[in-house]
Simulated scan of single mutants.
Amino acid sequence: MPQARCIAMIAHDQKKDDLCAFAGSHEARLSAFTLVATGTTGGRIQQACPKLTVRRMKSGPLGGDQQIGAMIATGEIDALVFFVDPLTAMPHDVDVKALTRLAIVYDLPMALNRATADRLLRTMEPGE
């Protein structure tokens, strides 16, 4: 049996509700994938979608962004859904830029907003 493809899910504070709404509207489809998320975001997704299993990393500012970045570098992540808030300054902006850079370097499909995430999820197959 092929291993499920892995989607990393991250959201800035002002976008966590949007990411939870996205997960809720795609809960059945997302359940076919392996999901990883930064700590707080993962907890919020699990509360909103109790049927989903989410592997939670540390909170973004505490190293969760770097943990997911390492998973991108080792080929463990197949797509990144990162709901970015462009209107709020981020104290760990350097980590956010590093994560985005890794997704670009490793040619990883990346969605930064709901419209792109919807399209990305529609095109992905759960298995390899």
Rank of each mutant, 00 (worst) to 15 (best):
P2R: 12
R5C: 07
I7C: 07
A8D: 07
A11K: 01
Q14L: 13
Q14T: 15
D17T: 13
D18E: 15
C20W: 01
A21V: 10
A21G: 06
A23K: 00
S25C: 11
S31K: 11
G42D: 03
G42Q: 02
I45R: 03
Q46W: 02
K51C: 12
R55H: 14
K58Q: 13
G60A: 15
P61W: 01
G63E: 06
Q66G: 00
Q66S: 11
Q66W: 00
G69E: 02
M71N: 08
M71I: 04
A73I: 05
G75Q: 09
A79P: 04
A79W: 03
F82T: 07
V84F: 13
D85N: 14
P86Y: 09
L87D: 11
L87I: 09
T88C: 07
A89Q: 13
A89H: 09
H92L: 01
K97V: 00
A98G: 06
L102C: 06
L102T: 05
I104C: 11
V105I: 15
V105A: 13
Y106S: 07
P109V: 06
M110P: 00
R114N: 10
D118Y: 03
L121V: 04
T123E: 15
M124I: 06
M124Y: 03
M124N: 07
G127H: 12
E128L: 14
